[in-house]
């Protein structure tokens, strides 16, 4: 009968001694291996639970500015990111919001809202430049130069972005402040507030404020 680990040695039989040592070694190896396996399982479980928290391949842009040069930069990055296979959201707030306008509905606006609507651009065609505006001469000059260099226009980039599945979100608080209604804005927009932006941004590898 072979010895079990923990049995007391009674004889010096070499065969029984060998079996005894083998059994001891096997037991120790199993013990150690079980411990190792447990810590590997624990580490794997940890990796599995933390992995979804890592940012996904997503880009979120806040468009706060309303000047044609800045907004163009935003749309070039957005369309580029979409071409790189990223999910892109653009959140238009404050001065950036009137860029999304297609028309102005005067009916129902208060006097301050009418004033704002007069002073702010109605869509990308009427936006000024952040530098060298020169009473409207700057934007004209910029348009001419960009046409010469065959750079896409801002309206074309905006259409392209929508075609590529870039999510354009209008800030509803800015709409309220400026008295801008949904019928004045482009079709195919999403609407939301800061939580909408934060939900997207928290999950993004890239966030920009332009």
């Amino acid at each position: 009968m072979p010895l079990e680990p923990g049995d007391r040695m009674t004889t010096a039989d070499p065969l029984r001694l060998e079996q005894y040592i083998e059994a001891c070694v096997e037991q120790k190896v199993n013990e150690r291996f079980a411990r190792l396996q447990a810590s590997i399982d624990q580490a794997l479980a940890q990796v599995r639970t933390t992995a979804p928290a890592a940012p996904s391949d997503r880009a979120t842009l806040v468009v706060f500015s309303g000047e044609v040069d800045r907004v163009m930069a935003a749309f070039i990055i957005a369309t580029g990111a979409a071409a790189m296979g990223m999910d892109v959201s653009m959140f238009f707030t404050f001065w950036g919001l009137p860029i999304l306008k297609k028309t102005t509905v005067w009916e129902g606006k208060s006097i301050p809202e009418k004033l704002l609507a007069t002073m702010l651009p109605t869509g990308p065609e009427h936006a000024g430049t952040s530098k060298l505006h020169m009473l409207g001469l700057g934007p004209l000059l910029l348009k001419k130069i960009m046409r010469q260099h065959n750079v896409e226009t801002l309206p074309a980039l905006m259409t392209l972005a929508q075609e590529m599945g870039v999510r354009l979100i209008a800030c509803q608080m800015s709409m309220g402040i400026m008295g801008i209604t949904r019928e004045e804005l482009l079709d195919g927009l999403d609407y939301g507030g800061v939580a909408t932006y934060l939900a997207d941004a928290g999950d993004s590898r890239l966030t920009l404020f332009i």
Partner: peptide, 11 residues
């Protein structure tokens, strides 16, 4: 075509 159009067209 200028930036970003080549990569947009490629994609």
């Amino acid at each position: 075509l200028n930036c970003p159009m080549p990569i947009v067209r490629i994609s």
